[in-house]
């Protein structure tokens, strides 16, 4: 079974936990998924391994970015009808507050869903939804990466 068929099968079974099994990096950093209504929601449990600044202690900015990027990808996979695996084109993150040694949550929003490209916004927060620790936007390629006709 190829990855696309596997993903469509997972979606049909609503088996959001199986989705994470396909992404070893997400397991490595401690991503957890749950369902709120029909939407998939990603959270990042705190682990010592994600610390970037032991003095505060604060999460590594890279771990936060990786978590948010992954959250956007999972959100897209769950929300749209897949004909290809979405591939990340670019990701731009603004850090607003240090990520403390506690769980991090994310919310994704698809700003524009085209036939070839999707643009997503992601917000991450910890204890207070009104105090996000980072916000990000990223483009994902939805179409096949076929050559443009000359």
């Amino acid at each position: 079974m190829n990855l696309l068929d596997k993903l469509n099968d997972i979606k049909a079974r609503h088996d959001y936990e199986a989705l994470i099994d396909l992404i070893p990096y997400a397991k490595t950093i401690g991503v957890e998924t749950s369902m709120i209504g029909e939407s998939i929601v990603s959270s990042l449990r705190f682990t010592e391994d994600n610390i970037g600044n032991p003095a505060i202690p604060a999460l590594h900015g890279g771990a936060i970015a990786g978590f948010m990027e992954n959250a956007a990808l999972l959100h897209l996979i769950w929300e749209i009808e897949l004909t290809n695996i979405p591939k990340i084109i670019d990701f731009s993150i603004d850090y607003l507050r240090p990520g403390q040694a506690t769980s991090t949550y994310s919310k994704c929003h698809i700003i524009r869903l085209g036939s070839r490209v999707a643009l997503c916004n992601v917000t991450a927060w910890q204890e207070d939804t009104n105090k996000p620790i980072a916000q990000a936007r990223g483009h994902f390629l939805l179409s096949e990466n076929k050559p443009i006709k000359p």
Binding site: L3, K27, I29, H60, A65, E69, I88
Partner: peptide, 19 residues
């Protein structure tokens, strides 16, 4: 293996590259 994002093609996850 721990930083793979695409377990079919065994590509590294963008998040690890970002870090």
């Amino acid at each position: 293996k721990e930083i793979i994002g695409d377990s079919i093609n065994n590509f590294i996850h963008g998040g690890a590259v970002t870090t």
